[in-house]
Design a protein around this nucleic acid. Structure first.
Lengths: 190, 190
DNA sequence: CTCGCCAGTCTAGCACCGCTAGCCAATCTG
DNA sequence: CAGATTGGCTAGCGGTGCTAGACTGGCGAG
């Protein structure tokens, strides 16, 4: 019994190592550098071992994405907690969101931009994402007006996501970023 | 002299064929199906011929993206021309934008989502994109208020882009799409 | 008219990708 | 202790973007 327990522990540990390696590699060299061979070398096992833990590369990326979701949720929560005035809270959480995307671009890509084995809108979406969404929704509640809170939150979220993605891949001038963010917040809080 | 002229004509024709093949393939089977081998087979030449026209696959995709920009600009212009009331114009152009992204997802991806050899924010950005941007800007002018028009337009554009991308890769529920769009337009026109 | 050159195209192949079949050793079971 | 099972490995499949080097057909020079 105890041997089996040790085995399972080691196995879980190795699974964590895979996800951590994928994340570290992605954050330091970008997702292009994350290949199954490279990952296998990193954890000092052979390639097929990866497939005994995950269905494929997409599933590994999905695991990283879920981890990232958790951190995003935590940072949004912190931003919300730090605010006093409702309007300030919206501005603060928006800044926190954008800051996360800029500080952890690889993580952000895994969550939102890359083709990953995750169905977000369905029931098996990660609870971490729901938490992040809830933080945003609670912050927006005072300014939603007559609009349905969930739909309103999705729309604001889209605005943030659009700003982040368009700017990061060079579709928007990097200057004026702050002003764009201010406009978005302003239009959604008045 | 005339022989050379014919050669150049044939060469230009073949270049057009490459871009058209890439676009058709992408629109009918998705960008994953667009490989250099497949493309070569489609134009009935060997693979290396592609590289005598374009620096690489990314450059071919960029050419498709520029073509798509032109069509997007045209559709936005049509939407703007059809409107009477300023508020209606914003709603109309927003609907046209989203409709374009839904009807031509491959084209939209080439323009905005895929890693492509195009620097948008710099001076060698395609004029087609500038045209599309200008249509949006002119439509928004009456509702920009005190905000800088260009920055304001970028922000609204980001909102549209966020809605489109998040919905298309399953990050938003497909229902309520109309309502989200309405909220965005409403918040930017009042 | 012939010969050498050169542009243009092709075949073949490089290094890499995600993924898997099948072998082999270590471990558990009767 | 013999046999079954588990779990990792090596090797390889079919694909990718891209390129070196061979070949060929039409050109200009002698």
């Amino acid at each position: 019994m105890s041997i089996q327990a040790r085995r399972e522990r080691e196995r879980a540990e190795r699974e964590r190592a895979i996800v951590a390696a994928a994340r570290d590699l992605a954050e330091s060299e970008g997702w292009d550098a994350v290949t199954t061979r490279r990952l296998a070398a990193e954890i000092e096992y052979s390639q097929p071992v990866l497939y005994s833990h995950f269905k494929g590369k997409g599933a590994i990326m999905a695991a990283v994405a879920v981890e990232g979701c958790g951190e995003l949720a935590a940072e949004l929560a912190a931003a919300r907690a730090a605010a006093t005035d409702p309007r300030q809270a919206v501005a603060g959480i928006a800044r926190a969101y954008v800051a996360f995307a800029e500080r952890r671009p690889a993580l952000y890509d895994a969550i939102f931009n890359l083709p990953v084995d995750l169905s977000f809108a369905s029931k098996d979406a990660p609870v971490e994402l729901a938490r992040a969404f809830a933080e945003l929704a609670e912050t927006l509640r005072p300014v939603a007006g007559g609009d349905d809170l969930e739909t309103f939150t999705e729309t604001f979220w889209s605005g943030l996501h659009g700003l982040v993605t368009l700017m990061r891949n060079g579709r928007l001038r990097h200057t004026d970023h702050e002003r764009r963010l201010a406009i978005l917040v302003d239009r959604f809080t008045r």
